[in-house]
Design a protein around this nucleic acid. Structure first.
Lengths: 180, 180
DNA sequence: GCAAAAATGGAGTTGACAATCCAGAAAACG
DNA sequence: CGTTTTCTGGATTGTCAACTCCATTTTTGC
């Protein structure tokens, strides 16, 4: 579903990939929609888990930059194929499956919360100026990431993603309590 | 297709909306794919045309801010339903229809070029510092817009879009040649 | 060890949708 | 006018994918 989109993936495709028969799938998932909801939850967990190591210690500008660089490197490794596993689902399902949208909104909220927590820590430790708003900065950074991934996916090259993340980082760095 | 996605729109739906019979559609469009490509081109023109008035005179920070505000107002008016007409197509079609991806990449390029032209003008007129890179700033701004629209669509509220655009504007303002 | 329950394979059904076909109407052209 | 070309409506077809059904196997609980 990540590769071909939800609509572009048949239940039979899933059967083949999972080496499982139709009755099994429909035994555990009432209908395709339910399977899709499970995929949504799975992808959210997957993404957050994959980022856990870097996200859990976002406490310095270097750590933030390392995180950004890792994302760019990952897209490069994928030859810019596929955008964000969560973002792609969000775009495809938001207007189509209200339940999926709820789940995706919750997923983004969790992601955002982790970034916010990191920025909060930085502010508490005096690295980030007191007037910086971690919530808004985290939201902006996440948005820049999503937009950058989309443009990178369409253009099949990483500069858009870099530009977006550099812009977000530049803005966050403008709240550097030490340099300023 | 903007409302329900490409996959969620049947050719019959299009027939009904256009008050046209099957043979007519297939007379002018060989297959659904061709119709989709036409939609892609149409949406790109539509978006660029709608923004033309504000995009054509992006020559000051006020003009940039006015443009951003207009986008937020539009999404508010739509109750945050539907993201960017181009971005949504891009996300759905990038991995599925190479031809559509090409068209969408070109569309984004045109959009980006207009923003870049505005920033370029600002730099030439001395409003933007010489070290500012209009190309990268335009790319970053467009990415922030796309990401902001996506998050806003999923959450059904405008703050994410505002946060993203404010972040981008903040970064661009940091190159204000007069204030700094 | 046996009965009840859960799980499984895979063929089969149903419905929907993309695409076709053809008969007839309108336009174009000389 | 007449003929040729283009256009149009709507019924039809073929395909494909979601979902069901039932006979069989495996597991569970006593």
């Amino acid at each position: 579903m990540f590769e071909h989109g939800v609509a572009g993936t048949t239940v039979e495709d899933v059967q083949r990939a999972a080496r499982v028969s139709a009755s099994q799938l429909y035994h555990y998932f009432k209908e395709k929609k339910e399977l899709v909801l499970a995929v949504v939850e799975h992808q959210i967990d997957e993404v957050l888990e994959a980022q856990q190591p870097l996200l859990s210690r976002l406490d310095s500008f270097e750590a933030l930059q390392t995180w950004c660089d890792a994302i760019v490197a990952l897209q490069e490794q994928r030859h810019c194929r596929g955008g964000c596993p969560i973002g792609s689902l969000a775009s495809e399902l938001s207007e189509l499956e209200p339940e999926a949208r709820d789940g995706l909104a919750a997923g983004f909220a969790r992601w955002e919360a982790r970034i916010r927590a990191g920025l909060q820590t930085m502010r508490e430790r005096g690295k980030l100026a007191p007037e910086a708003d971690p919530a808004r900065l985290a939201l902006g950074l996440l948005a820049a990431l999503q937009g950058g991934l989309l443009l990178t996916q369409v253009r099949r090259e990483t500069p858009p993603l870099r530009a977006a993340l550099d812009m977000a980082m530049g803005h966050i760095r403008s709240f550097d309590a030490i340099r300023n």
